[in-house]
Amino acid sequence: MPLRHPWRLSAAGILIVALGGTIWSIAKNPNVEWSIVAHYFFSDLVVNGVLVTLYLTFIAMAIGIVGAVAIAVMRLSENPVLSSIAKFYIWFFRGTPVLIQIIFWGYIGALYPQVKLGIPFTHVTFWSTGSSAIITPMLAAILSLGLNEIAYSGEIIRGGISGVAKGQVEAAHSLGLTPTQTTRKIVLPQAMRIVVPPMGNEVLTMLKETALVSVIAGRDLMTAVQQIYSQNYQVIPLLVVAGIWYLILTSLLSYPQRLLERRYGRSRVSAMGSSGSRRLLLGFTGSKKAALSHD
């Protein structure tokens, strides 16, 4: 029996050899110093950094998603003021590098040295304090990543909402559901299955994006390894430490994503209702016709 895919097989062979060679050369590269990698891999500073990175990812995504639903609903609102505000927000936060936003929040003290609680446009002040006491690097990191995420997730959710057929809303309205009930029970659940796959990617992107907060000393994984290698100059081994951790975390996080996709995948089958059933219906028609002509 001749080989069915000789080219595919040999290409795969070449790639395996190349990949193996690369891994081998890194593994055996004296500059990587695996003993140092092993030494720092579970060190307190690194492990703490991993936890902070996870924490930042979850908080920023939580802010991002909650805000995104609001921004998306505003963006699609018939109220021109609301939709303009949403449009401006998205334009602004997607139009500037997140790195600038992070640094901006980190140095907000330079813009507003004092935070005051008082009556606007008067000199009456009940309470005031330095901004840096409130906007810690951690809060700056959360704010910058979260507010930025609102803009990106907002566009994803808007896509999901507009992807729901107009007839769905009309059917819900015709049954007497209020606009709010319609959004909650009919539109958002259907938008979910459009939204889940790209949102999963957002989570992974966010996880890696948290590395940027090292520029304001956010105490995340990246900050931790930078802090270590700035003292011992073992840049490569520590980057390997961080890299492996990021790989582990992204692999772990893609598991719930797959679960969610499967969960909403089921209703996706039935969502194809109109077209899917159309096909089913034609099949049915055909067989019925055949049965009729038999008589």
């Binding site: 057929a165 007839g167 769905q168 009309e170 059917a171 819900a172 309205h173 015709s174 049954l175 007497g176 559901l177 209020t178 606009p179 009930q181 009919i186 259907q190 209703s267 039935s270 969502a271 194809m272 209702g273 109109s274």
Partner: peptide
């Protein structure tokens, strides 16, 4: 919405909630 609750509507494309 309260008024519409008393008026049933059937659409060409069914518009069932998938």
């Amino acid at each position: 919405a309260k008024q519409r609750a008393n008026i049933g509507m059937v659409f060409q494309q069914f518009n069932l909630f998938p």
